[in-house]
Simulated assay, not measured.
Amino acid sequence: MPEGVTDPNYRPLPGRLGNLTVQQQHTLEKFKKELQDEGHFVPERMDDATLLRFLRARKFDLAASKTMILAAEQWRKEFGVDDVVENFDFTEKEIVDKYYPQYYHKMDKEGRPIYIERLGKLDIKELYKATDIDRQLKRLVLEYEKFLHERLPATSRAVGHPVETSCTILDLGGVSLTNFYRVKDYVFKASSIGQDRYPECMGKFYIINAPWAFSGVWSLIKPWLDEVTVSKIEILGGSYKDKLLAQIPAENLPAEFGGKCTCAGGCSLSDAGPWNEDAAASPAPAQPEA
């Protein structure tokens, strides 16, 4: 059992530390050495687990993975990620929550942080009275950074093994195609940041309350997605409760989705989870050695 891992049932998935083929191990080592030799290696954010995210995203094609990670590094400079992490304050969070709820809340049965987005609640007119696309994207990037550096280490400690992905619930209940069209620029930019700059963060992805017309949209989108990504997405109509509860403990699932959680002040503003508990002060479980 790797040091720091207390879950006796933990078995890393293929392509992760502790479960690499000989060729994958060789590619990882070469990837790291080339980055080091060329002066691109950043120790604080290029550990083996992170390098493997980029390798998996490009099916262990070394040249393509290097192009991807160098592009991500250049984007970090241009976007000003370090400044966002240190100085950005999304002061309009409570107002935005009324018109476009997006939040992390506790974890699923496998220890993944749960991310919830309620697109059907979107009120574009009121939303853009309170914020703008630039500030929304800065908030998104700040949350990705917290996800990697605070939420995942905390959930890893809580369950006793490395956790690398999220469990997402996208609620389309009441969604307006008109409103979606008006917010599409943000959605597309946000999706690009997720795919290109923070790859391999998706674990489970549930699309709930999907309107009947969504099946037609999905049939057009699906062929353009990687088969691994498609396998993680489940599209559900209004009968989603049993599926969610099979993946998420009832006490962790907000009551509006069929769970039992009713955080004081509302789940969407609570940021409830082990990342906000005192236990998070202890070291995270070590990743298995490469």
Rank of each mutant, 00 (worst) to 15 (best):
Ala279Arg: 14
Ile124Gln: 09
Val96Ala: 02
Gln36His: 10
Ile124His: 14
Ser191Asn: 15
Glu234Tyr: 02
His105Leu: 03
Asp123Lys: 07
Leu220Pro: 02
Ala250Gln: 06
Leu127Asn: 05
Asp196Phe: 03
Thr155Asp: 07
Gly203Val: 03
Leu148Val: 02
Asn209Val: 02
Glu38Pro: 01
His161Pro: 00
Ser215Gln: 15
Lys243Thr: 03
Tyr198Phe: 14
Leu55Gln: 09
Gly173Glu: 13
Ile233Trp: 12
Leu70Arg: 12
Leu236Cys: 11
Phe188Arg: 15
Ala63Ser: 12
Ala190Tyr: 06
Ala246Glu: 14
Arg112Ser: 06
Gly266Tyr: 00
Thr155Met: 08
Glu164Gly: 03
Tyr206Met: 12
Leu20Gly: 03
Ala213His: 07
Lys33Phe: 08
Asp37Gly: 06
Leu225Pro: 01
Pro199Ser: 14
Glu3Gln: 15
Lys121Gln: 11
Asp89Arg: 13
Phe205Gly: 00
Thr155Gln: 12
Val228Gln: 14
Val230Asp: 05
Glu78Ala: 09
Asp37Leu: 05
Ala272Asp: 10
Pro43Phe: 08
Thr6Phe: 07
Cys261Leu: 10
Glu126Arg: 11
Arg16His: 15
Phe214Lys: 13
Ser231Trp: 15
Ala130Trp: 02
Lys241Cys: 05
Glu251Tyr: 00
Arg76His: 13
Ala190Thr: 01
Thr27Leu: 10
Asp108Gly: 03
Ser282Lys: 15
Glu92Arg: 03
Ile69Gln: 13
Ala279Tyr: 07
Leu62Ile: 12
Trp75His: 04
Asp7His: 11
Leu152Ala: 15
Asp134Asn: 13
Ile193His: 01
Pro2Thr: 10
Ser268Phe: 00
Asp82Leu: 05
Asp123Asn: 14
Val183Arg: 05
Ser192Gly: 06
Lys232Glu: 04
Glu29Trp: 06
Leu148Asn: 14
Ala290Asn: 11
Val217Lys: 08
Tyr240Thr: 02
Gly80Ile: 00
Pro249Leu: 01
Cys201Asp: 02
Lys138Tyr: 01
Asp185His: 11
Leu70His: 05
Leu225Trp: 08
Asp242Leu: 02
Gly265Asp: 00
Gly15Gln: 03
Tyr103Asp: 01
Ala64Met: 08
Ser231Met: 15
Glu38Asn: 12
Arg139Phe: 12
Glu143Ser: 05
Gly238Ala: 09
Leu119His: 02
Ala130Ser: 13
Ile114Glu: 04
Gln247Asn: 13
His40Trp: 09
Phe257Glu: 08
Ser166Asp: 10
Ser176Lys: 12
Ala72Glu: 09
Gln247Met: 04
Tyr144Gly: 01
Leu269Tyr: 02
